[in-house]
């Protein structure tokens, strides 16, 4: 019997940390917080893009492009927040911004939403969590992951195959049958938008999308992969939300640009809490979380050393499971 044929264990543990009464004050949605954070983020991107244009042809382009690329990579944060529907009180606004940031960041909105929902259901459960790191992570696998090879390989497949209705059989389990037409339709729209951008730019100026979008996305993604490895890398593979997800201490600037995602354990404990309330949730309940990392550098060093020595604490422990998925229409 393969791991996929076993009944999965769902992520659990919230009940040991906080009750509904505890988290209810943090659930309030706000258009203001979302608009300010999104406006500042896009404003910084616009300023950086301006600096890219004035430093082109000089050595200054190297650091300026790095900053610009990192700011674009941080758009993963609003992609993620909007996928939860917690960025704004107004749901329509949430969905419009979700589409915009997904197009720039290069992920398909609905498919990402389902994949991410499944990551929350089966956090760190081998064979069920679509975001898990490789079971036998080697140093070269770590480097491949951080450089973004696995990210682009996966996303390019999504964009090329989904428009033709071809969805990877290993990923179908998290997509309800009735949603496949929507995913295919979205993939076709995105394909046409990207093809349109390519066509127009070839006619007028092919360098503009390359310099301001494609190249910085390729340059910046490793930074995002490097940061995101801290969220679950080397955490327990046991489904317990107190142990399988890590909150990372970092600077206020990084927290701001990452839309408070360094408070990742708090986010997994209570995904309904919007980004702007995660810090307050951490102040009150962070001490109950077992996995707290002291900076991205030290976590990555730890993960890399263990990957190199193949000392993953739980990598030899595929999870035994107790519950079946209960969706009424999962294929």
């Amino acid at each position: 019997m393969t791991i996929m044929e076993q009944a999965p264990l769902k992520a659990f543990g919230q009940e040991y940390v906080l009750t509904k009464k505890d988290y209810k004050p943090y659930l309030k949605r706000s258009n203001k917080h979302g608009l300010i954070r999104f406006g500042v983020h896009m404003g910084l991107i616009a300023v950086a893009a301006g600096l890219v244009s004035v430093t082109l042809g000089t050595w200054w382009i190297v650091p300026v492009m790095a900053v610009y690329a990192i700011l674009l990579a941080f758009l993963f944060a609003p992609v993620h927040e909007c996928s939860h529907g917690t960025t704004f009180r107004n749901r329509r606004l949430n969905e419009v911004i979700f589409w915009i940031v997904c197009l720039i960041y290069m992920v398909p909105p609905t498919f990402f939403r389902y994949a991410h929902a499944t990551h929350h259901t089966y956090t760190q459960i081998r064979g069920w969590d679509p975001d898990m790191l490789p079971e036998r992570m080697t140093a070269s696998a770590y480097i491949k992951f951080v450089l973004g090879f696995t990210f682009w390989q996966r996303n390019i497949k999504w964009f090329l195959f989904h428009p033709f209705g071809k969805i990877d059989p290993t990923q179908r389990y998290f997509l309800p049958q009735s949603e496949i037409p929507r995913v295919v339709r979205e993939a076709r729209i995105i394909f046409m938008i990207y093809a349109g951008i390519a066509g127009v730019s070839i006619v007028f100026n092919p360098w503009i999308p390359l310099i301001y979008w494609v190249i910085p996305r390729l340059v910046g993604e490793p930074f995002m992969r490097w940061m995101r490895i801290s969220e679950h890398g080397e955490c327990e593979e046991n489904g317990d939300l107190r142990e399988n997800t890590r909150t990372t201490y970092t600077s206020g600037i990084i927290r701001y640009l990452f839309w408070e995602m360094p408070y990742h354990a708090e986010h997994h404990l209570c995904p309904m809490v919007p980004f702007h309330a995660l810090g307050r949730l951490h102040e009150k309940f962070g001490h109950k979380l077992h996995a707290v990392g002291d900076g991205y550098m030290s976590i990555n060093k730890d993960v890399y050393v263990k990957a190199k020595q193949k000392q993953g604490v739980t990598w030899d422990n595929p999870t035994s499971s107790v519950h079946q998925p209960v969706s009424q229409e999962f294929s």
Binding site: R91, M272, Q328
Partner: peptide, 28 residues
Amino acid sequence: MDGVIECPLHQGRFDIRTGKALSPPVTV
């Protein structure tokens, strides 16, 4: 919020009055 119940796990939303599934990942 606003006559809608949001699921605690994946933030799928239902209209409380009609039970209608309003947004992914809920479809039923």
